[in-house]
């Protein structure tokens, strides 16, 4: 078990470095740079307008990010700054360190993601159980049709229809901004619904497989009811594999927040990233990409470990089977 964890972490380190290298070279190769962009603007507007980036500040940035040094020094300075949490000044917001920008925005994105995953998990378990117990009835087919529709449509299209119905027609919920709990409802639903599609379907199939297995016959032979079968045996065995589905879902969920934050005007991390990308704010792009990579890899590792912990065969012996 320990060997497995060590190997996984090693892969994570390699993957992390690979992500940073690729990002670094892509940014370098991109036409136009923040410095050039601002020097150009600074040239025409002279010092009449405070653009936020003065000549002196620029030199500081050059120094901080070793912009005149060989590539590997530059690359490593990005990675090192990130790892040591000395994420320096961003180009776009030179007076605010990237770290504090991320600190302001990251919790919002994570909160949104966690809320969505919770809502999605609960709803998909309910949908899956209902469909599996009512196998091949119209309840089953209807639930699963909705599930397929959910998977087929991305969060931002679902958001359109949610905004339209609950914001424009019914005026029940706000569609823009981020000031209170009611502002969370539509974004969370938009993010959760596509996940319910695949998770609910998975839940149903997995539960149905369990319900058709031989040890369920034993439960009935003991005098168990459908309730005993589903809640005492079926659910626990189907929840286990569901965890493996949640992992990859989390990654796509983090990406889903990118659209949703932009559409609902939520000042989260994804919003920060897209602004950074359009302004060519390298430190910010680098740091947020690395953070996302870390989150996604970390989530997957955690999911695998939790899975291992929950399955007694793996927990007690270190391997499955």
């Amino acid at each position: 078990m320990l060997k497995y964890v060590v190997r996984r972490v090693l892969y994570m380190v390699i993957a992390f470095l690979a992500v940073s290298l690729v990002t670094y070279f892509l940014m370098k190769a991109a036409p136009g740079s923040f410095l050039a962009f601002n020097q150009f603007l600074g040239g025409i507007t002279a010092a009449s307008i405070n653009l936020g980036v003065t000549q002196q500040l620029m030199q500081e940035l050059v120094k901080e990010y070793h912009l005149n040094s060989p590539w590997y020094v530059q690359w490593w300075s990005y990675v090192w700054n990130f790892l040591s949490l000395h994420m320096g000044a961003s180009f776009e917001y030179p007076n605010t360190p990237t770290l504090s920008l991320i600190r302001q925005t990251f919790p919002i994105s994570v909160g949104l993601a966690l809320m969505s995953i919770t809502v999605a998990t609960v709803l998909s378990i309910i949908a899956g159980v209902v469909a599996a117990v009512r196998e091949n009835t119209w309840v089953d087919r209807g639930t699963m049709l909705v599930a397929i529709l959910g998977t087929a449509i991305p969060a931002y299209v679902i958001a359109v229809f949610l905004m339209l119905v609950f914001g424009v027609w019914l005026h029940w919920l706000p569609v823009l901004g981020f000031k209170g709990i009611q502002y969370y409802v539509l974004p969370v639903l938009s993010l959760a619904l596509p996940m319910i599609g695949s998770m609910g379907r998975y839940m149903r199939n997995s539960l149905m497989e369990t319900l058709h297995s031989e040890y369920i016959v034993t439960v009935y032979a003991k005098g168990g009811s459908l309730k005993n079968v589903v809640f005492g045996h079926g659910l626990r065995n189907s929840l286990l594999p569901l965890i493996t589905v949640v992992g990859p879902q989390l990654a796509s969920l983090m990406m889903g927040t990118v659209f949703i934050e932009n559409m609902f005007g939520i000042p989260g991390m994804a919003h920060l990233f897209t602004t950074a990308a359009s302004m060519r704010d390298y430190p910010l792009i680098m740091d947020s990409t690395l953070l996302y990579a870390l989150v996604i890899m970390g989530m997957n590792l955690i999911v695998d470990l939790v899975y291992g912990f929950l399955d007694p065969r793996i927990r007690k012996t270190g391997y499955a089977g």
Binding site: A15, F16, V19, T23, T289, I296
Partner: peptide
């Protein structure tokens, strides 16, 4: 492991 959408951006 890449945050794919960020890479597309």
């Amino acid at each position: 492991a890449f945050p794919s959408f960020l890479f597309s951006i």
